[in-house]
């Protein structure tokens, strides 16, 4: 199939603009990123700079990749990262608009690549259990109700890609932050620091310039791992308790 791509090109020291490229003889079996590889191979062969995008595992688990395709984070296939989206999802002659995550807390580095280190700062401010290596008791000293363990796991499947921020009209990082707060807050190991954690992580999230949640639910709709909106409600409850406790 043949496609027309309108791709956002931007370097750190310039304003961005859309450039139009054609992707020719694209196999329906190729992944979306492989389609871009072909476009890039051609550009490189002509001595032109390839389109820059983050990617690594190409199995939908590392969370590196992600951009908007026709305004939708990770493109049209639900529950799927863009690296796992295949070209059979598109039709010959399609024209696609490809642009980076748009959020002031995620500044564009180049083309489709953005700076997501704000997510790391949120984790650094409390997204952990403070247990030194070697200080752990036997794994079976603390049984965990299976339901809680499974729910904590579902929250922990977040890959930190940033699609939730990109899809949110407020560019909020509530789904990301609440997933980590909930993962640890639902386990007995995470209880000791539960309220300091939520308080510190939410503070850092706000300092980083992410907006607030106004219940649009766009984040859950684009999340490639199906992380549930319920975690946001859960985090807000914990945050309220933390405030009451004066943490």
């Amino acid at each position: 199939m043949n496609l027309t791509l309108k791709v956002w090109r931007q370097s750190t020291d310039s304003d961005g603009r859309f450039e139009t490229y054609t992707a020719e003889n694209v196999s329906a079996e190729a992944s979306f990123l492989e389609m871009l590889d072909v476009v890039n191979d051609k550009l490189e062969g002509q001595g032109e700079e390839p389109i820059v995008f983050d990617h690594d595992c190409r199995e939908g688990i590392c969370g590196s990749c992600g951009f908007l395709v026709d305004g939708v984070a990770h493109g049209p296939e639900t529950g799927t990262t863009i690296c796992q989206t295949h070209m059979r999802k598109f039709n010959d002659g399609d024209s696609l608009t490809i642009e980076p995550w748009r959020a002031s807390a995620f500044p564009v580095i180049k083309d489709l690549m953005v700076d997501r280190t704000a997510f790391d700062r949120i984790i650094e401010s409390g997204g952990y259990v403070s247990v030194r290596t070697g200080a752990a008791p036997d794994a079976h000293t603390m049984p965990v109700n299976k339901h809680d363990a499974d729910d904590a796991f579902n929250a922990a499947t977040c890959i930190g890609c940033g699609a939730c921020v990109a899809a949110c009209p407020n560019a909020a990082a509530m789904l990301f932050t609440s997933a980590k707060v909930s993962h640890l807050g639902m386990l007995p190991q995470g209880q000791v620091e539960r309220y300091e954690r939520v308080s510190n992580m939410v503070d850092t999230m706000e300092e980083a310039g992410f907006g607030a949640c106004s219940n649009h639910g766009e984040c859950e709709a684009v999340c490639p791992k199906g992380v549930s909106l319920n975690y946001i409600a859960r985090m807000n409850r914990d945050l309220a308790v933390a405030k009451l406790k004066g943490v």
Binding site: Y128, V129, V131, T133, G134, A135, A136, P137, D138, A139, M142, A149, D150, A152, F153, A156, H183, L184, L187, Q189, G190
Partner: peptide, 9 residues
């Protein structure tokens, strides 16, 4: 033991 204490589900 270490992973469980860290909250690995």
């Amino acid at each position: 033991d270490q992973a469980v204490a860290q909250g690995v589900p």
